[in-house]
Write a protein that binds this DNA or RNA. Structure first.
Lengths: 351, 351
DNA sequence: GCCAGCAGTGCTAACGTTAGCGCAGAGATA
DNA sequence: TATCTCTGCGCTAACGTTAGCACTGCTGGC
């Protein structure tokens, strides 16, 4: 590798002069600067960032710590971050945890050793104590999931309200047996979404202890398939289904297509997130749209400002983006006797 | 930040001893090792990799340079690489080029300054000359696209054969007006895929100069929508359509759904890649399945071996994975007069 | 004619870690 | 008792870059 010393020797000047010429220092004559830049270019000199960092300069790397890049939420976030950071000369490190706290810890150790400038993290359910310690030493930002021990800098969506709306949509259509399939309550998002679901049930005068909530790994497409099969095979199958994860939604749609379940006649479905395929699935999937792109952009801008301005404006920061229900064809009033249960309306078109 | 010096001062020993204790050097007594490790843990010591790198150690970072992480091909690759590299203690840097050679160059400069250990790149159509120079200094591997100036280490798929098969499938069903929508010939993949398409036409005795090939930005979903609209509105609309990019396929499916085009009655479609939604789109999308995951794994293993073994086994290496046609419901013999063109078969079930 | 000031450059230390070499003390051997 | 070996540890230089300080000529003011 070419160093400033190589350039200095070739030109018969000192390394200081080379360094200053490359830094465009005003004390160096234009002629010298020109010769140095010429030589550097010819010789293929590339400054060694490791050496620069040893002199106290911070790195230009920001790490994104997420469960799985294949989840389109996270790839969208990664793209948006990358785009915004590239303009500021930052690079993006990618760490996948697979929702395993030990993997998360290993990654955070590595990132800490690499002295990354900042970390954007979607934490696991219960981060290891050492992970918490490591994060404290680096400017960081929680994304989507908010764990109290990791500080109060957080960008996320209103999970509670999103699921409340989605469920209320089914309640309003007269469904009384509504199931929920989402992530575990150990995850902050899982807990909020379940709360929103139950809250909407209560508001609609329905019992919320129905045991119609299936919780499990939110990134596991196969779990979505199996769970929806269990729900439909059960003794008292629901007429409505609300989903609380994009991967689970993918699994459910796959399974419903394969089993030939008639939507919305046999089952009304509200998905989570908005993938390309959701609009053309069956009758079109009614789903919860989330402003992931905007959130990621906000996140990137916040961190860039945090890293490029001197004063440590480390006050608590929280940004909650609202979701919005996208109504397509996968939801309709329930058919059959269950429909009469919703009070005064005449049972027109009953089958 | 805590350094070995801090630990040394606290324990009243030298930095050398601390360093050797942490490196588990056999010359250090077990008792000292224990005390050092204890102190390091308590004080939250994390080794500074920048300093370590200055002593000639190579970094543990591998960069992935791709057009866009939102493309599921690339997110799958990123995931697979990440998973395989994590076990070996490597980290993944993500660089998106948006297929812009200047962005690509900027990223490669940064990566070079960071002294990444290796680079896996899906190059742009015509990489900048400086990009070529920079890559030469780092162990690297081309993925999917193969540009001659970047060396002969390459992992990819058999683009030619994949498109030949896909097109032949339509030819065999009796289509005579088959359109192709894919990336530009400037891209190695674009050129190969177009060649495969035209080759299948010739083999089927069809003219291959039909002008039914629409080429354009392969990552642009909207371009897919517009292009298929143009094809269908044209004076001589095709009865079959073969696609040469996953993003274009997404756009086409969206547009066909929206316009209510009857598939396969009005148009037979063969997609590219296999997304979750492809199986439930319309009658199920016949598509070209590609072993992206296996290819990425092979890629990761090759680079890991390359980086962890001493001798620079830099001989040319090329691995071509075959694709396979997944036949679903979106392809069928053409209806209408065009069908009679395919020789002797009686026109049963004509309508 | 002498000193101040300035432009342009060189010398050197420092960042944190590692490895080669050296050294002190304890025990073994002659 | 004198020498050798081994264990356990310290000293120091080196990696590439940067910044503080010092140095050399030269110009201008008094």
């Amino acid at each position: 590798m070419i160093t400033t010393r190589d350039i200095a020797e070739r030109l018969g000047i000192s390394v200081s002069t080379v360094g200053r010429a490359l830094a465009d220092d005003s004390r160096i004559s234009e002629e010298t600067k020109f010769r140095v830049r010429q030589a550097a270019s010819e010789m293929g000199y590339v400054a060694n960032r490791a050496a620069r960092m040893m002199r106290g300069a911070s790195s230009n790397v920001v790490a994104l710590v997420i469960p799985d890049i294949r989840n389109s939420f996270y790839s969208t976030i990664a793209h948006e971050l990358s785009k915004n950071m590239e303009a500021q000369g930052f690079q993006l490190m990618l760490s996948e945890t697979d929702d395993d706290r030990m993997v998360e810890l290993r990654h955070l150790r590595e990132l800490s050793a690499s002295r990354v400038a900042g970390i954007i993290i979607v934490p696991t359910a219960r981060p290891h104590n050492d992970s918490v310690k490591l994060l404290r030493a680096v400017p960081h930002l929680q994304l989507l999931r908010k764990h109290p021990s990791l500080g109060s800098q957080w960008f996320g969506v209103d999970d509670y309200e999103a699921l409340r709306q989605a469920t209320a949509h089914l309640v309003a259509q007269g469904h009384t047996r509504i199931a929920y399939l989402g992530g575990p309550v150990e995850l902050p998002t899982g807990a909020e979404r379940l709360k929103g679901f139950r809250s909407a049930l209560r508001e609609g005068g329905l019992p919320d202890d129905a045991g119609l909530a299936e919780l499990g790994p939110p990134s596991d497409v196969d779990h979505g398939r199996q769970a929806v099969r269990r729900l439909l095979e059960g003794p008292s199958a629901p007429t409505g289904l609300v989903l609380g994860s994009i991967q689970l939604t993918l699994g459910v749609l796959e399974e419903l297509s394969q089993q030939g379940v008639k939507v919305p006649q046999e089952l009304s479905v509200v998905g989570f997130g908005d993938e390309p395929g959701f609009s053309w699935w069956g009758p079109g999937l009614t789903t919860i749209g989330l402003p992931i792109q905007e959130m990621a952009t906000g996140c990137a801008l916040w961190l860039m400002r945090r890293l490029t301005t001197k004063p440590g404006n480390d006050g608590p920061y929280t940004s909650v983006s609202p979701g919005s229900l996208i109504v397509r064809g996968s939801t309709a009033p329930p058919s059959g006797p269950a429909r009469a249960r919703r009070g005064g309306r005449p049972s027109s078109q009953a089958g």
